[in-house]
Design a protein around this nucleic acid. Structure first.
Length: 414
RNA sequence: CGGGAUGUGGUGUAAUGGCAGCACGCGUGCUUUGGGAGCAUGCAGCCCGAGUUCGAAUCUCGGCAUCCCGACCA
């Protein structure tokens, strides 16, 4: 993509009405635009990051046997009454049609849809287990939206739901999802600071698990055991006392962001919707369920919060909007143009700062702000030796590589 | 929802009862170009509504919006 074609632009100053690091960086770099408290438009660069995260999640969910679907954000009141959550779910957006008295909900989560949906098709133990997932926009009427994309009223989430014949089968699947989540957080560069955290599991199971990423800006407090690499949520620290795995009481208190959550629903929703299957003997059993969420936009914000530096964003290759940020400075513009075309032909994701009216300084500063992993500068200086300059975002070291090897070389890097 | 704060060109800010100014941005021209350029010139603003006053961006009241703290958070 050419910078000159991009309708957005970067800005030097962060707006006064954003205090959180992620929102400041995303707005300055032109990734998002605030429409109102807790609601943002996603701009071209931001959307590319979201698509990357979605791709990664999709791959993992499919590996877990998940079948991708897309359920509605607009949901019938009746389903929410069936589970009692029409009245009890505080952050449910409810509204009435302008034309009739019909009331609707905007989905904050999809148990009320997915359970009757699976019930419609699954009626025998032979069809279990099953799992479905979606990547979709959720709505929650947060009492206070805050911290940019960290806690917004409209956000993108990946939600997976699994359906089992037995508790044991759910347990096995649950462990597989846990491992999958760990791979996902590793892949986006926050694995080292993300902890499986024991949280309250409600009345139906002993624990649920959250994936908590250590961050100064986090709104949750966790108590972590460095030895076991697990943590305990603030909610249950009183009853739990020590580390759930080694019983150590030397836990460290840290602020963290909840980037994912896995939960054994057991039969809560299958009971509400009378979803059961027959076993070999023809006896009906309520289906055992699990649900597993990762906030896509929150994950994006978390990566920005923990990996950025004073110059701007710093994306891991796995979810970067582009792999290469190319620019031609004085004396290097025509060579940069040629390189750009070559990259495009080769299918490398390249962002080309082809602006005629931007100064060198401006281009360099923008590259740091946007945080694309590899920067290639072509200028009179580099061309003296028939080379271009390659620099990785966040590192000081620059490497000169022969211009004719550049495209091939980057293919190896990315 | 309780508490606190703030609303001035697109963005960041100054003026605090008396001519709305600066920087970035945007337009035009020329010169520039390895870390958010220079000169010249132009465009663009007081959140909304009442009130006080000779006079309100400034004071008062109401509304709206945004941020922060708290409560809440599958």
């Amino acid at each position: 993509m050419r910078y000159s074609q991009l309708f957005t632009k970067t800005q030097k100053e962060a707006p006064r009405d954003e205090e959180s690091l992620n929102a400041k960086l995303f707005i300055r770099a032109g990734f998002i635009h605030k429409e109102m408290a807790g609601v943002y438009s996603i701009l071209p660069l931001g959307l590319r990051v979201i698509r990357k995260i979605e791709g990664l999640l999709r791959k993992e969910m499919i590996a877990l046997g998940g079948q991708e679907i897309l359920m509605p954000a607009l949901q019938p009141k009746a389903n929410w009454e069936q589970t009692g959550r029409w009245k009890s779910y505080d952050s449910l957006f409810r509204f009435e049609s302008f034309y009739s008295k019909v009331e609707y909900a905007l989905g904050p989560t999809h148990e009320e849809i997915v359970t009757p949906l699976l019930k419609r098709f699954v009626s025998s133990y032979k069809e279990l287990p099953r799992s479905v997932f979606q990547i979709q926009t959720k709505f929650r009427d947060e009492k206070r939206a805050k911290a940019g994309l960290m806690r917004s009223r409209e956000f993108i989430m990946k939600d997976l739901y699994s359906f089992h014949l037995t508790q044991e089968d759910l347990e096995r699947y649950y462990e597989r999802v846990k491992e999958s989540y760990e791979r996902i957080f590793d892949a986006v560069g926050i694995g080292g600071i993300t902890y499986v955290t024991f949280a309250s599991g409600g009345t139906f199971s002993q624990y649920s698990h959250e994936f908590q990423t250590i961050a100064p800006s986090g709104e949750d407090i966790i108590f972590l055991c460095e030895k076991c690499r697990v943590a305990v949520n603030k909610e249950i620290i009183q009853e739990q006392k020590g580390c759930p795995e080694c019983q150590s009481t030397e836990l460290k208190e840290r602020k963290a962001v909840e980037v994912g959550n896995i939960f054994k629903l057991k039969t809560t929703y299958s009971k509400a919707f009378e979803f059961s299957t027959k076993d070999e003997k023809g006896k009906a059993h309520e289906v055992i369920m699990g649900c597993y969420g990762i906030g896509v936009t929150r994950l994006m914000a978390t990566v920005a919060e923990v990996l950025s530096d004073e110059k701007g964003l710093r994306w891991p290759s796995s979810i970067a909007p582009f792999q290469v940020h190319l620019m031609g400075l004085i004396g290097g513009k025509s060579e940069a143009e040629k390189l750009y075309r070559e990259f495009e032909t080769q299918g490398t994701e390249v962002f080309y700062d082809d602006r005629e009216d931007a100064t060198s300084g401006e281009k360099l500063v923008d590259a740091d702000l946007m945080g694309i992993p590899y920067r290639i500068v072509v200028s009179e200086k580099t061309l003296k030796t028939g080379a271009v300059e390659l620099k990785k975002r966040g590192e000081e070291k620059v490497e000169l590589i022969k211009i004719q090897d550049t495209v091939h070389n980057l293919k190896a890097h990315t």
